[in-house]
Amino acid sequence: MRSIKYAASLAAISAISVSAQAATLDDVKARGELNCVVSTGVAGFAAPDDSGKWSGFDVDFCRAVAAAVLGDGEKVKFVPTTGKTRFTVLNSGEGDILFRNTTETMSRDADLKLTFLPVNYYDGQGFMVPSALGVASAKDLDGASVCIQTGTTTELNLADFFRVNNISYEPVPVETNAEAQTNYLGGRCDVFTTDASGLASTRASFEKPDEHVILPEIISKEPLGGAVRQGDDQWADIGKWVVNALIAAEELGVTQGNVAEMAKAAGDVPSINRLLGTEGDFGSMIGLDAQWALRAIQAVGNYGESFDRNIGPDTAIGLQRGLNAQWKDGGILYAAPIR
């Protein structure tokens, strides 16, 4: 009896809300909260801190979108997903937007009916070996045993690389990244391989990071970016231009610190004026007001600030900008102009 009442009361209290389907923007505004699909934990990209507040590079993009749309970077509900569930959660409508270390591929774009946002991190698969092995290049790895996570693109890339270079390897199949780390540290495989960002953070967590080297070869392209459901172009535009705005802000020297000052009145640089809404009316083109980019930058800073705070050289992850530098600085970040 007690139990039946419990069920009834739970059923009564649980919210059963009805909302329109296509216009994600209206849904998000009505809900007052952005449902952002993130991972269940990837170092530097998304993880809860000691007090339970999510932080990380991917998380910053969620907050920027929330700030642009709802005016507050804290109005985000994070939906943690595993690699298997991420697209189902997005496509079933449980999440509005996805920032989850996700490689943009043709099949995901076309077959899984996603629309990808601009790339926010250019990654690629690399190798780590103990420095005692004395290996300087991945091409010297003939006959090495390699810990591979089964069922990943990592596994396929690895097979391709060794076949093309006509060298052999001995696979040690493992299930998770944590298992791979344990096996590697225990000496059961000579080589640890995953995306370069993952290699760096894994190495940083070792007791003696100096005893391991990351080899120079990057053997695959892993452009990581956000994604939304296909079929809601306005919502995709919002995601796309928020990412572009953060990248452009760095290029234009707009930071979390100076953005409020710059947005007070139109300045000498037209592209900054257009970004911050002091010239033209670009916000309304994507269904937002003129201060959308201002709020996004105020919430998380520009691309470079977020990078430095979460995964940059001064953090435990210690990633260099590399490919992810602005095009002016030798990288390939190149935000489409806001005009």
């Binding site: 269940t40 934990g41 993880a47 569930t85 449980e94 944590a178 780390q181």
Partner: peptide, 26 residues
């Protein structure tokens, strides 16, 4: 329940291990 994105103690543990401050304390 971790497979559907609810963080039970194990899920919290997994997510916590991804915090750069505490990585690797499984």
């Amino acid at each position: 329940v971790i497979v559907i994105g609810l963080l039970d103690p194990l899920g919290i543990g997994q997510a916590s291990l991804a915090d750069t401050k505490w990585q690797g304390l499984s």
